[in-house]
Computed example of a mutant assay.
Amino acid sequence: MAERYQVTVDVHVILQRGDQILLCLREGTGYRDGWYCLPSGHLEEGETVVECAIREAHEEVGVVINPADLQPATVVHHLPPEGKPRVGMFFAASRWDGEVVNAEPHKCGRVDWVPADRLPDNTVPYTAAGIAAYLGGVGIDVHGWPELATR
């Protein structure tokens, strides 16, 4: 019997302050160092996507988000150049407790508030695709699948 298809689930948090969103500059990770991404991480076994979003926001930027303040933003089915598909669950929040800080300086060079509609050129393309889908009101999108791309 063939083994079922498995995919990595990534959870991204769009912290929004007016027309700005928070980005983290990757550093010392070995993947896309020098590029901006959202506070994000992989879903862990036994964890819901909501729990993961709350955990990642706290671990990476020191804020605590009430589940009621976390809204679904978009879902992106991503095919990276390496060829291992992923599903990105993007959530948005404009309310949280605590001050934003760089809580993982060993993985992050800095955190920056940037205009949501003018991301830095060095934003991870997968991250940029999720933010664009969110801003465009696209509930589900694909990224990196040339024959299926909606953009």
Rank of each mutant, 00 (worst) to 15 (best):
L43R: 03
A2K: 10
H12L: 05
W35H: 00
H106R: 10
I54D: 05
H78D: 15
A103N: 15
Q20C: 05
G46F: 11
R118W: 06
A149K: 03
G34D: 04
W113E: 01
P39C: 01
G62T: 03
P80K: 14
D121I: 04
V111L: 02
F91R: 01
G144A: 09
E27H: 14
A2Y: 11
A116C: 02
G109N: 00
Y126A: 15
R55H: 11
R110H: 13
D10R: 06
P115Y: 12
G144W: 14
E51L: 13
T8H: 10
S94T: 08
L148C: 08
I65Y: 08
G62Q: 02
A73V: 01
V101G: 10
R4T: 06
T48Q: 04
V61T: 07
D121M: 12
L25C: 10
H58W: 09
P85E: 05
A93V: 12
T127C: 14
S94A: 13
R110Y: 05
T150A: 10
V100T: 04
L38W: 03
R86I: 02
C108P: 00
D117C: 05
I65W: 13
A128E: 13
G62W: 08
I21C: 12
D10E: 12
V75A: 03
H77K: 11
H143S: 10
Y126S: 14
E47Y: 05
Y134C: 03
D141F: 07
A53L: 14
Q6N: 04
V124M: 15
P80E: 12
P72F: 13
V138G: 00
V11G: 05
V50D: 09
N122Q: 08
R32I: 09
L135C: 06
V114S: 01
E99N: 04
S94G: 11
E99S: 03
D69P: 01
V64I: 07
I14L: 15
I131P: 03
H77I: 15
R26T: 08
T48G: 00
E3N: 04
Q6H: 01
H12A: 14
V75E: 03
H12K: 03
H42T: 12
R55T: 09
D112P: 05
D141V: 06
A57S: 07
P105D: 14
V50M: 07
F90D: 03
C52K: 10
N102L: 05
Y31E: 12
D121V: 07
H58I: 01
A73I: 00
L23A: 09
D117W: 09
P81D: 14
N122P: 04
A68Y: 13
D112W: 12
R55Q: 07
V63F: 11
W35D: 01
R110A: 13
L79S: 12
Y126K: 13
D117N: 08
G130N: 06
P72K: 02
R95M: 06
